[in-house]
Structure formats: structure tokens, C-alpha cells
Design a binder for these strands. Structure first.
Lengths: 136, 136
DNA sequence: TATTATCCTATTAAATCGATAGGAATTAAA
DNA sequence: TTTAATTCCTATCGATTTAATAGGATAATA
């Protein structure tokens, strides 16, 4: 299940992607428009800034803005920052790989086999969808 | 992320699917073979029996067995019983649909749009993979 | 009757999630 | 130079979920 953090994060990023200019948008504006708890959204945007996706400006007229063109931000990046691994099990994860301790032979594991297929497909979608695609 | 319950459940089902005969297999046999906590596995198999996937027999020589031919058990069934919804958000779920309370217009929602694609692909894989496929 | 299993309910420790609180730091405008 | 607006940061909290364990009830076999 997708966490609310991820859900809200995507909505906020799409909101920012829809801005023609790159003027800062205040947290409260986004939170009202998207029905997201202001404080919660604050922490989400902060983490997206720390991870290099957003820029921010303090003080009056401040807010958050995208650092790159929406069409250059694939959903793989967004999902990994917000939700973490795209794979459903660590043993098929590209960026967060971990061996299972119960599993002796990864090649022979049914879960591994199945979830590898799912990951490949999901990855394909996220790679080929950008923030720009979602904001049209 | 896949829960251990689901992971263990799939492994146990595949183990049972590999049995040529339909003789009952004891929990402890599976738990040792697959490195799964015996008590935890017990509760998992019990729930699979209550949901009509497994049969059981008590007492000496007892255990669990599949009620159907592995090739007639698609992973959609298995996943829904063990993990619940296949969709990453309730608003794109076929069997567990729920409206988001923050979302006014589902059609216009970027998360909905994206996760619908993911669900379609994942569903396709689960529909076209049976327990028999995984036990080869 | 003894033994071997599943059945059932309850409990628990740890982790995660979603949200909130309150003030520090910074910037723009009056 | 002051005031208002806004992000920044850390800490905390309650609720839920997860993974696992415990212990006895029930049933089947030999």
C-alpha cells in the first residue's frame, strides 16, 4: 500500500509541475488546494528539497519550486525518494538490494521469480512516466 | 513491501504444490524446509484453510494439502488472501475499492492515473501466473 | 488410552505511520 | 529598522500493523 507521504508528495510535485513559471509556491497554498495537512506536507516538501528535487525560498514571497523541468523527472526518482524501494521484496530490488535470510537459493525461490516480474513491469512504467506526463 | 506473511504463505503453497500426491504435509515439515517460524506458519496456513485454499487433517498423519490443482490457482487469489489489495491505492482497487477523502475528482488525480497503470500491469502478471508455474 | 497433529484465542514487543507542536532562522516589504 | 511572512528543524505522540509466541482445546490415529 502506498503511504500517504508518497501520495501527498506526488500530488504536491504535480501541483508544482503545473506552474508555468518557476515562482515559489507556499506550502499552505498547496495544502489547501490538495486537502493535505499543512504540517505533514511541510515535512514532505522539506525532505524533497533535501534530496535535491525541490528548491525553496524563505520569508515573504517564499515557497517551493521544482529544480528541473518536469519532463526530466521520471517517476522512478520520485517513488524512490518518497516510498523507498520499488520492488516488493528487497531480494529483487535494484537500488535497495538485500538477501533474504530465510532463502538459501535465490534462483530457486518462487517469491523471487514472481516479484522480479512485477518489479520489471512496474519499473518500466515509472521509468517512462515523468512529472510532465502526470500534469497534463 | 510484501509482508512476511505473504512471503511465507506463497512459499508454503508452492511447497504443497510440488507434492505429487495430495497427502497432508505437516506444518513442521514445511517450516523446517522453508526456514519459517513454526507458530507463525501455523497461523498462516490456518487462514488459508479458512479461506478455502487448503484442506487439513488433524491427528497423526495429519497436515495441510491443496484443495485444487495448482494450475487452477492463479496468484491473484493467493495475493488477495494473503496480502489484501493488489492495487497500491484503494481508489484503483477492483476488489477493495474505496474513495479517497482528500481527492475531489478521481479522474483528474495524478496518483490515480499512475497507480491505475501499475495495477493493470501487476494484475496481468498475477492473473497469468498460477501456483503450478511457480513450482516448476 | 497415548500420541500426534491441527485449532483457536490471546498476548506482546517493536516498528511504522500520520500527524502535530513550537520555536529558530531568514527574507521581503512597510 | 521593524514587522510580517515563510521555511527550517527537532521532538513528540497516539494509533495501527507486523511478526512472533504461548498455551491449551480438539480431533484423529494406532
Amino acid at each position: 500500500m502506498l503511504s500517504k507521504k508518497t501520495k501527498y508528495g506526488i500530488k504536491a510535485l504535480v501541483y508544482l509541475a503545473k506552474q508555468e513559471d518557476r515562482m515559489p509556491v507556499q506550502i499552505s497554498v498547496i495544502s489547501k488546494s490538495e486537502n493535505i495537512s499543512r504540517k505533514f506536507l511541510e515535512s514532505i516538501l522539506l525532505s524533497l528539497r533535501k534530496n535535491g528535487l525541490l528548491g525553496s525560498k524563505k520569508g515573504k514571497g517564499g515557497g517551493y519550486y521544482l529544480l528541473k523541468d518536469p519532463k526530466d523527472i521520471p517517476m522512478t526518482t520520485v517513488m524512490r525518494l518518497l516510498e523507498g524501494p520499488i520492488a516488493m521484496v528487497p531480494c529483487v530490488s535494484l537500488n535497495f538490494y538485500e538477501k533474504c535470510d530465510d532463502c538459501l537459493d535465490e534462483e530457486a525461490c518462487a517469491v523471487n521469480k514472481l516479484m522480479l516480474k512485477v518489479r520489471d513491469n512496474t519499473l518500466d512504467i515509472f521509468r517512462n512516466t515523468t512529472l510532465a506526463d502526470l500534469s497534463n
